[in-house]
């Protein structure tokens, strides 16, 4: 059942900390609260794929510490804009910190004002599990034909809260939860998914070259497996925040 504004108010002020929803900071409730949603704002940190460092994405190897980072981080001070160009993709963090109890899940949705300009705020992962705590990560994509200026502090998305029975598997206690407690725009940890381990083992057993093997200038050696380790995918398996 989706929570209306007064039901959400009750959960935001619940005397039991274990049942309380936390959204902080709440800057202006009149602007942010709707009948069944709360608007959230854009934070100050962004990440974009540094395509010059990426051959292609392969999850069978994780980021290697001796290689250049693939995602570039940008901090945008207040009053300045991050420009998202047509066709560009960027990760961003919400200004708000959100904590969800075990009996509530959340959908992250765009706002129509931005949708009409061609800005998508998530690629595929718009679901927040019960038990999640941290900033909401946006997967920004400009599908219009003009650049869009994005300012920290603007309302860019809305959260819809759904009540239900408490889960016994809250997100922060999942075996493979990867993003709990994060407060910035964190890149994908997709290479940590356990299914890739079998592929890595099989490759290793078959005697294939290490995927990270490189030439003197850091370029892939012909015939070797792709330079995958440093790659950070700009999308996630699900929002799972």
């Amino acid at each position: 059942m989706i929570l209306n504004e007064l039901e959400l108010l009750a959960r935001l002020t619940d005397p039991d900390p274990g049942r309380r929803v936390i959204i902080t900071p709440i800057v202006n409730p009149r602007e942010q609260f709707g009948p069944t949603s709360v608007d959230i704002r854009l934070g100050t940190d962004f990440k974009v794929v540094d395509v010059a460092n990426v051959a292609f994405l392969d999850p069978t190897a994780g980021p290697a510490s001796d290689q250049a980072p693939v995602m570039r981080s940008y901090r945008v001070p207040p009053e300045r804009a991050f420009i998202l160009h047509p066709g560009e993709f960027a990760l961003a963090a919400s200004m708000e910190f959100v904590r969800v109890p075990a009996d509530i899940s959340v959908r992250v949705e765009g706002r129509s004002s931005w949708g009409r300009l061609g800005l998508l705020i998530h690629a595929t992962a718009g679901f927040v599990d019960p038990g999640f705590a941290g900033s909401i990560t946006f997967e920004l994509h400009n599908v219009s034909r003009v650049p869009i200026a994005l300012y920290p502090g603007v309302r860019i998305a809305q959260l819809c809260f759904f009540g239900g029975n408490p889960t016994r598997l809250p997100y922060d206690q999942k075996t493979y939860s990867k993003y709990s407690g994060k407060t910035g725009a964190f890149e994908s940890n997709y290479h940590l998914d356990p299914e890739y381990e079998a592929i890595r083992r099989r490759r290793s057993g078959s005697g294939r070259a290490s995927p990270a093997r490189k030439g003197a200038e850091g370029k892939p050696v012909p015939g070797s497996a792709p330079p995958v380790g440093q790659v950070s995918a700009p999308h996630d398996d699900s929002q799972q925040q």
């Binding site: 900071p25 800057v27 202006n28 704002r41 934070g43 100050t44 901090r75 207040p78 009053e79 200004m95 910190f97 900033s135 920290p152 502090g153 407060t183 910035g184």
Partner: peptide, 14 residues
């Protein structure tokens, strides 16, 4: 750090 930064944006909104 995130708190310092967010408070700065919050003050701007105020």
């Amino acid at each position: 750090l995130k708190s310092l930064e967010t408070a700065g944006v919050h003050r701007l909104m105020e």
